[in-house]
C-alpha cells in the first residue's frame, strides 16, 4: 500500500449498489479509522476509469441490466484487472462476485463475459430465487468465524479448480449448486453472495481485508459490541426451527 493512506476503491456505485453495498465501504473505513489508519475512499462511477493503485476494491450487487453494463465497462476499462494482477485485494458481492468470474447470464439471457479474476462461472438457476438469511462456515484456512448474511439471487455459480469455496452453508443456499458451497476465493480475491451487508454482519472479514492490505497478522483491537450482538441475534434467528 501507499505510505500515507489506505486506498479503498468502491467500484461503480452508480450501477452496483442496490443491496446496501455502501455499507461494506463504510465498515472498512470505520474499522480502519478505529485503528488510527489513514483511509481514502475512492468512489468510481462507471464513466470513470478504475485506478490501479488501490489497496482494497469493493464491488457490489446490482440488478440484471446494470450488471451487464458494469461488466462491459469493466472489461473495456481494464483498471480492475490490472489492479488484480498487481495483487490488489478484491471483494465482490452477488452481481459483483459473478462479474469477477469467467461469465454469467445477462438480462438479455445471453452469456456475458466477466473479468476472469476468479475461476467460477454462473448460470441461471431453474428453481426459485434464493432469498433469505444464510449461515456458513468459512474455509478454515482463513481462520474466520461463521458468516452470517442475506442472499437474494437467481444465479448458480460453479467453482473451477483455481478457487476454493469461501464457506459452506449451514443455512441458506449460497452458490446454489446444491453442494453447500458459498462464494469463492483465491489469494486476495474474494466473492460471496452474502449481503446484509456482509462486512456489517461479519466485521472479521473487514479486518481480514485490512490485514491483507497492511500485510500484518494482527490489528489493534477495535470494539465489536454491537456487531457481536447483531451476529448472535441473526444466528439465533436463522437456526431457530421454523
Amino acid at each position: 500500500m501507499s505510505e500515507s493512506s489506505l486506498r479503498v476503491v468502491w467500484v461503480y456505485p452508480d450501477l452496483l449498489s442496490t443491496y446496501g453495498d455502501r455499507g461494506n465501504a463504510l465498515v472498512v473505513e470505520r474499522r480502519a479509522r478505529q485503528r488510527h489508519l489513514n483511509v481514502t475512499r475512492i468512489d468510481v462511477r462507471s464513466d470513470q476509469s478504475v485506478p490501479t493503485s488501490g489497496d482494497i476494491y469493493l464491488i457490489g450487487g446490482g440488478e440484471d441490466r446494470p450488471q451487464r453494463l458494469a461488466a462491459e465497462r469493466l472489461r473495456n476499462d481494464t483498471g480492475l484487472v490490472r489492479a488484480a494482477e498487481n495483487g490488489a485485494i478484491i471483494l465482490g458481492v452477488c452481481a459483483g462476485f459473478q462479474i469477477l468470474g469467467h461469465e454469467f447470464v445477462n438480462d438479455l439471457g445471453q452469456r456475458e463475459p466477466g473479468l476472469g479474476l476468479l475461476d467460477v462461472w454462473t448460470t441461471r438457476g431453474e428453481g426459485e430465487r434464493c432469498v433469505g438469511d444464510v449461515l456458513a462456515d468459512v474455509d478454515p484456512q482463513l481462520g474466520l468465524p461463521q458468516l452470517t448474511g442475506f442472499e437474494n439471487h437467481q444465479g448458480v455459480t460453479h467453482l473451477g479448480q483455481g478457487v476454493k469455496p469461501l464457506a459452506r452453508v449451514t443455512a441458506g443456499r449460497g452458490n446454489g449448486t446444491g453442494d453447500g458451497t458459498e462464494g469463492a476465493w483465491r489469494d486476495t480475491v474474494f466473492g460471496t453472495y452474502l449481503h446484509g451487508p456482509v462486512l456489517a454482519r461479519n466485521p472479521a472479514v473487514a479486518d481480514m481485508l485490512l490485514k491483507l492490505a497492511l500485510d500484518v497478522n494482527a490489528l489493534p483491537p477495535a470494539d465489536t459490541t454491537w456487531y457481536d450482538a447483531l451476529r448472535a441475534e441473526r444466528i439465533a434467528a436463522t437456526t431457530r426451527p421454523a
Binding site: 443491496y19 446496501g20 453495498d21 455499507g23 449481503h195 446484509g196 451487508p197
Partner: peptide
C-alpha cells in the same frame, strides 16, 4: 421486506 440491507443506503 425481510432484508435490512437498505439501512446502509
Amino acid at each position: 421486506g425481510t432484508d435490512t440491507s437498505w439501512l446502509w443506503d
